[in-house]
Amino acid sequence: MTSVDKSAPATAVALANPWALVPPLGNLDAYITAVNRLPLLTPEEEQRYARQLREDDNLEAAGRLVLSHLRLVVSVSRQYLGYGLPHGDLIQEGNVGLMKAVKRFDPNQGVRLVSYALHWIKAEIHEYILKNWRLVKVATTKAQRKLFFNLRSMKQGFKVEDATDDITHRDALTAAQVDVVAHALSVKPEEVREMETRLSGGDVLLDPTPADGDGEHAFGPIAWLSDDRHEPTAMLESAERDRLATDGIAGALKSLDERSRRIVTERWLNVNDDGSGGMTLHELAAEYGVSAERIRQIEVAAMKKMKTALAEYA
């Protein structure tokens, strides 16, 4: 590793070895200060490094492209601090998006890397926020994602407009405001209302944590969940299944001839929980002196006859 003269100007150091300006350890403020000191690339330098990466797989050129745009990630990540997630994590995810953009950047398209990378940086940050903002994912479709990242700011805009009318206490969107949001984001009004409901709620633990040091649990929403085991309809259905599994199967077997009944019993009823224990088609074929295909045909016919008998029994 080449040594760097600490007395040299920051710009000269960056040109010689840009990595020297990014501290390996330290707090977030030190990192942001360091990346803001990294020099920007001229269009000609950007084109040269992009071609070196694309044509020669030059990792040093990729590093210079990434380093010169780290300040862009810091700037974009600040726009998402309102979601309550660590700024360092937002920057880290944005850096992942930046590296993806550098890898896919085509210098022949006639656009600057900053314009191309902006999409990838935001995409990675968006994905991180959606996965970590709540325990339960609140946005999955394209329309829901647009609403998730725009609805709160648009509601704030409505509140500012309404401040002159002294109705800033209102939190829910009016029907007219819902239509405005839906038209602006090209989504349906019902999707706006649904996302507003999702954003207004929060995560609630069904099973609460102990309320004290004695291990006693606090009262939680799980106490309100119903027990379906004693619901009348479920109990009747369970009793009917049990009746068909015992008396019904026994009656259906009696409708078969002796050979068919034994084949069905050996193939389906004398089987252990792990799937072992029943006789194979070839074993039954050897016992009855016929082909395995003939045993299979008898089995299929017997099963159809049993289904008819079970339907009549039910």
Rank of each mutant, 00 (worst) to 15 (best):
K100S: 08
T265M: 12
E283V: 05
D56Y: 03
I129G: 12
M279V: 11
P232Q: 02
E312R: 06
R145Q: 15
T164E: 04
D207L: 05
L236E: 14
W224D: 15
L41K: 04
V160M: 08
K6S: 13
L185R: 12
M1E: 10
A302T: 03
Y31H: 09
R112C: 05
I125T: 12
S75R: 15
G110I: 08
K6H: 13
D56E: 13
E237P: 02
L281E: 03
R170I: 14
A309G: 04
I32P: 00
L28G: 12
L253A: 05
K122V: 08
R145L: 10
V178R: 01
K137R: 15
R241L: 14
S153M: 03
G289Q: 01
G248P: 03
A286E: 13
K100Q: 10
T33V: 08
Q109D: 13
L281D: 04
L151T: 06
L253G: 03
F148E: 10
N58T: 09
A8N: 05
L81K: 10
P24T: 02
A139R: 02
M306E: 04
M303P: 01
D257G: 15
V102P: 00
Q92S: 12
G26C: 01
R296G: 10
H69M: 02
Y288T: 15
G201F: 14
S255I: 04
G84W: 10
L15N: 09
L113C: 04
K304D: 07
V271D: 00
N270L: 11
F219D: 13
G248F: 01
I298A: 11
L310Y: 09
N132Y: 02
S260Q: 10
G251C: 06
D228V: 12
M99P: 06
K307L: 10
N132K: 03
I298M: 11
Q92C: 09
R193V: 11
T164G: 07
S260I: 05
I249H: 06
W133Q: 10
S75D: 14
G251Q: 11
K155V: 13
R261K: 13
A176V: 15
I121S: 05
T197A: 15
R241P: 03
N95Y: 07
T168A: 15
Q109R: 14
Y80S: 11
